[in-house]
């Protein structure tokens, strides 16, 4: 080891890493414990739920038991799958359009100050508009087909994507831009090498939120009218008071949202390989 590194480690700093390591080890629960504990909690909760209904504390026509829900899930598997495909397709289409539009808008806001000043307040306000509230309007305007569903998903994903990207672009250290200017970097190169990576973290956070909005947005639009999709399935089983199948569809929606979030996480991991190194050196 060369002298510079040796001196960095020396000088009273040596005992500290050991102590920090010891504290980290006693604080972090083991992997088995981290997996088993929530599992036990969920199983216990399901057991209580099952018991409450079986003992007649809550009438079964109001609350199905977990076993009944699973049975419904299995019985209606084919039907649920085909409705899921519809919902997923609408959510995916809306998400893609929302991301593309949000990206374009964020780039324009970054490139043109006037554009940023004009739309920044609007973007913030738009975050407070419940998209559920505009869903009935979209159905009125665009009918019972797939279009109002996709549009609702676009509307509810566009804003978080735009806001996260625009603030991500702004988060880049101005000194980095100065440094790149001294290297004769073009505007495009500054965007590609500095701004885009700086925004990646916030972009993926926004995308994860958008992914859940996308599924929920599509389902809500389907509630209000349509021929297929999990929302349509839900309104139908509600009318026939089959609450077990209602619960089954809720489970499917939650699983789809989780899967989409996981997918975003996988894409993020593939596109941001430096994050793993950063996490490791933070733990050290």
């Amino acid at each position: 080891m060369s002298a510079p590194e040796a001196s960095e480690l020396g000088g009273g700093a040596r005992p500290r890493p050991a102590r920090r390591g010891a504290r980290a080890r006693s604080a972090a629960p083991s992997r088995a414990r981290r997996v088993l504990t929530p599992l036990v909690a969920v199983v216990a909760l399901l057991a209580v739920w099952e018991a409450v209904v079986d003992l007649g504390l809550v009438p079964n026509f109001l609350l199905p038991t977990p076993v009944q829900v699973v049975t419904a899930l299995v019985e209606d598997a084919a039907l649920l799958a085909s409705h899921s495909v519809t919902t997923l397709a609408e959510a995916a289409a809306g998400l893609v359009v929302g991301v593309v539009l949000g990206f374009a808008f964020a780039v324009l806001m970054d490139r043109f100050e006037t554009f940023y000043l004009a739309f920044e307040p609007l973007m913030t306000i738009s975050q407070t508009i419940p998209t559920v509230a505009i869903a009935p309007l979209l159905v009125l305007w665009l009918g019972y087909g797939a279009l109002p569903k996709v549009v609702l998903v676009v509307v509810s994903t566009f804003f978080p994507i735009t806001v996260s990207l625009a603030s991500g672009f702004r988060s880049v250290d101005p000194d980095v831009i100065d440094l790149m200017r001294t290297m004769n970097a073009s505007r495009w190169q500054i965007f590609w090498y500095a701004k885009l990576p700086a925004a990646a973290d916030q972009f993926f956070s926004g995308l994860k939120i958008s992914a859940t909005y996308a599924i929920v947005g599509a389902v809500i639009a389907e509630w209000l009218g349509g021929n297929a999709g999990l929302g349509v399935y839900m309104t139908r089983v509600r009318k026939s008071f089959s609450y077990d199948r209602m619960f089954a569809s809720i489970i499917i929606i939650s699983v789809l949202s989780l899967a989409l979030m996981k997918l975003v996480e996988l894409v993020q991991r593939a596109l941001m390989p430096w994050k793993r190194a950063e996490r490791n050196s933070n733990e050290r």
Binding site: D175, L179, P197, W274, E278
Partner: peptide, 14 residues
């Protein structure tokens, strides 16, 4: 000119 700013400014993504 070659200019080294006060911070190392290494790009974390490269």
């Amino acid at each position: 000119v070659s200019y080294m700013l006060q911070k190392d400014l290494l790009l974390p993504s490269r």
